[in-house]
């Protein structure tokens, strides 16, 4: 290779100088050669390849859902999240339904309860409670 001559570093506007420099640069680049790798490298790669299992999962496998074992854990986690979300929705719905359900204290059911209480002889207690309430109102 011809070393790049600093004297050929003519003003940049000189096309001839630029061309000369390009030629010199090409020659310089050609001089840089690289030795071949050692013979052991190929043997080492082969040995390691024997110990390295190929990834048998293909793109077709991924598309058909035949995913590998390590993905099962993630799949189970996803099911867990799904179940938790379903429970949360159910609870929210149940809570809302209970809150907005109409009270049945004034319905026929309430009268049935009153009749049952009277049958059991609890009318005296009701009278006593009512009496207590009235006397309290009178004292106010």
């Amino acid at each position: 290779m011809t070393p790049i001559d600093k004297n050929s570093n003519m003003p940049p506007e000189s096309e001839a100088a630029a061309e000369l420099l390009d030629t010199q640069l090409d020659a310089a680049l050609q001089s840089y050669t690289v030795d071949a790798p050692s013979d052991l490298l190929a043997a080492r790669i082969l040995k390691m390849a024997k110990a390295t299992p190929q990834q048998k999962q293909t793109f077709q496998d991924i598309e058909t859902g035949n995913i590998r074992q390590e993905n099962v854990l993630w799949r189970e986690k996803r099911y867990g999240f799904g179940i938790a979300a379903l429970l949360l929705i159910s609870l929210t719905f149940a809570f809302g339904t209970l809150n907005f359900a109409p009270s049945d204290t004034e319905s026929d059911t309430a009268e049935i309860w009153l009749e049952a209480a009277a049958d059991l002889g609890m009318s005296d207690i009701y009278d006593w409670v009512e009496g207590q309430t009235n006397s309290m109102d009178d004292t106010r």
Binding site: P37, L41, R44, I45, M48, A49, T52, P53, Q54, Q55, K56, Q57, T58, F59
Partner: peptide
């Protein structure tokens, strides 16, 4: 070079 060839080997079925 070793890494490149091993990756090629490993990923070849894909």
């Amino acid at each position: 070079a070793q890494t490149v060839f091993l990756k090629t080997w490993e990923m070849a079925p894909n």
